[in-house]
């Protein structure tokens, strides 16, 4: 409710800014639109892919490869999936919720979320072209082991603590 009121204020502010040619409000409105468009280019497509994933991929498949009995290969699949993820954490999180409901284990899911932040292929290429390959390689090879270790610890900590993903 408070959120709706605040958002209404925001909209009114932007509209008034446009009417009275108030620069701050117009710039903020432009920011909103440009980010909204860049997200709308990816998010609906990503959600359709998530929908297809939930319909077609059997729970047993995920359980076998990413579940409790999966060994190091589970982390490998998580890294591969994260590399091909597009968008950012706002795509990775809904995907992780789907993985959870299909029976993937927590440490694998957190590995996926963490890696999706730093190891997406298009983003990595972009980074290397601006900061150099050496920079990107250092970041990649230091971050991945740390992400896996912290995910295992987080998974261990949360197991048996009544933790659940929402957004079914």
């Amino acid at each position: 409710m408070i959120r709706k009121v605040l958002f209404a204020f925001y909209l009114i502010f932007i509209l008034l800014s446009i009417i009275f040619n108030f620069k701050i409000g117009i710039d903020i409105g432009k920011n909103f639109l440009s980010f909204a468009f860049s997200m709308l280019k990816i998010v609906p497509v990503a959600f359709i892919l998530i929908g297809l994933f939930e319909v077609w991929i059997k729970r047993e498949t995920i359980e076998k490869h990413l579940g409790e009995d999966s060994n190091w290969k589970g982390y490998f699949w998580a890294l591969l999936l994260s590399a091909t993820t597009v968008g950012g954490i706002y795509v990775a999180l809904p995907v992780s919720a789907s993985l959870y409901h299909k029976g993937a284990k927590l440490s694998v899911i957190f590995t996926y979320i963490g890696a999706a932040a730093v190891a997406r292929i298009p983003m990595t290429i972009f980074e290397a072209s601006f900061l150099g390959l050496k920079f990107t390689l250092v970041r990649f090879f230091v971050s991945i082991p740390l992400i896996i270790i912290s995910s295992i610890l987080l998974g261990k900590y949360l197991t048996g603590r009544d933790f659940r993903f929402s957004l079914e």
Partner: peptide, 20 residues
């Protein structure tokens, strides 16, 4: 699959708006 996509999008869109 489309229905699942729509439902999820609908659920998370308020959080998107807040973030934007």
């Amino acid at each position: 699959a489309f229905k699942i996509a729509l439902k999820k999008f609908h659920k998370i869109s308020p959080a998107f708006l807040v973030m934007l």
